[in-house]
Simulated scan of single mutants.
Amino acid sequence: MAVNIDEQGLTNEQGEQLTPLQAGLDRPPQLRAARVRQQSIIKTVVLVATLLFLFIPLASMLLFTVRHPLSGRWSLAAWQAIFTGNGESLGADLTVLWQGLGTSLALCVVTVVIMLLLMVPTMVIVHIRSKRLERAIEWVATLPLTIPAIVLVVGLGPIYRWLSADVLSTNPIWLCFAYVILVMPFSFRALAVGLNSIDVKTLCEASRSLGASWPRVFFRVIIPNLWQAILSASFISIAVVLGEYTVASLLGRMNLQVALFQLGQSNSQISTAMSLLALLFGVILLVALDLISDRIRNRKDK
């Protein structure tokens, strides 16, 4: 192909303008190398700034747990108290911490079960039947993101007062109903991504044409293809429940964050150390999610 260079730029024999790539021309190697170096420097600066923004507060928390703020003495007593379960030498009663931790773990299990029983069948049915209704459910599911937790407590307070007095009890496990509302936006988005990544209608029609019942289609065809989305929704819900403080505190219930706050009144080092462990647990959940997702993807590819 003949290329002409005129006032209009690069043109072919018919007078049509060409891009440098179409004309077979490229930048000199020196310019390309300089551009690559510039991009790599920008990426490095952004990455370092992000890591500093994330890890400097965590490093400060870790330093606070091993160095006494008044005397400057270095000690692992706060960590030893957590792993041995004895904080009497530091003037802290760890009973409330274990009570809050146990309550939060139980709330994680119950909240995830209720969320999956409520969200997965509803989203699958709506995804198959009506796109318009799916958008309405999306609006309802994401509504808790726009409502502050303290406003939710104002509405949930009378309901929980009635439930505690006349129907259920004051056991913190019943916070699961409020927590299902809080995790709904995150679980909806994770499940929606999973549903949009597969052709649910085609799978259902093919299974039904082969004689499978609807329960069999749901449990043997759709659920195996949604495992990654279900795990994502579950892990995100666990992270939200473990970090929730406002609802439990204002409703007068005990969970991990409320226990950490109360423990911080007597020994802030132990409270900070336990907060770091809770953050580490969240990171482990995310890494586990990534590893499980890769294994499921590799198994499908095989």
Rank of each mutant, 00 (worst) to 15 (best):
R135D: 13
V240K: 07
W98M: 02
D301A: 13
N4E: 14
V200C: 02
R27W: 13
Q228V: 15
V193P: 08
L152E: 11
L291P: 05
L54S: 07
P57T: 03
I147W: 00
K302L: 12
V45C: 08
F177I: 13
S187A: 15
I5H: 06
Q269L: 08
Q30K: 12
L58T: 11
A92H: 01
S213E: 04
C204N: 10
I5Q: 08
W174F: 15
L90W: 00
S209W: 00
L107W: 00
I296P: 04
G91C: 00
P224V: 05
V112D: 07
G87L: 00
G252I: 02
I284H: 04
G157H: 15
L279G: 06
T246I: 14
L277K: 03
L251N: 09
L182Q: 12
G102L: 03
A278I: 11
C176E: 01
R189T: 06
R35Q: 15
V153K: 05
T246N: 09
P29R: 07
P57Q: 03
L191M: 10
I41G: 09
L31F: 12
L286F: 13
L51N: 04
M119T: 12
Q39D: 11
T142A: 07
F53I: 14
S293V: 04
Q8L: 14
G155T: 01
V153N: 06
T103S: 13
L52I: 14
Q8M: 11
E138H: 10
R27K: 12
T103V: 13
P20Q: 04
T170L: 11
L10N: 04
I42R: 14
Q14V: 10
L263T: 02
R216T: 11
L242W: 00
T65K: 08
P185E: 05
I5F: 13
L231F: 11
G87P: 00
W98H: 00
R37F: 07
C108E: 03
V283Q: 09
L291Q: 12
T19C: 02
L51Q: 04
L101K: 00
A165Q: 15
I296K: 08
V154M: 14
L54G: 05
V109E: 01
I114Y: 09
D301L: 13
G100C: 04
L231D: 04
S234A: 14
G194N: 09
I222D: 02
V112Y: 03
V66T: 12
L118V: 15
K300D: 10
S207Q: 00
M119S: 14
W98S: 05
P185W: 04
I270M: 00
Q269C: 02
G100V: 03
Q14M: 11
S207W: 00
Q14Y: 09
T11V: 15
V109W: 04
L279I: 11
F55R: 06
I56S: 09
T202V: 10
I150E: 09
P121T: 01
V151F: 06
L250A: 09
L62W: 11
D6L: 08
A77T: 13
A106W: 06
F188S: 09
L105C: 04
M123Y: 07
A178N: 08
G24N: 05
L182S: 10
V36Q: 14
S249M: 14
S234R: 02
V96M: 12
L263N: 03
V240E: 08
H68C: 00
A49S: 15
K131C: 03
L260K: 01
A136H: 13
Q228T: 15
A259P: 05
P20F: 04
L156H: 08
G282D: 09
L182H: 06
R132A: 15
Q22H: 03
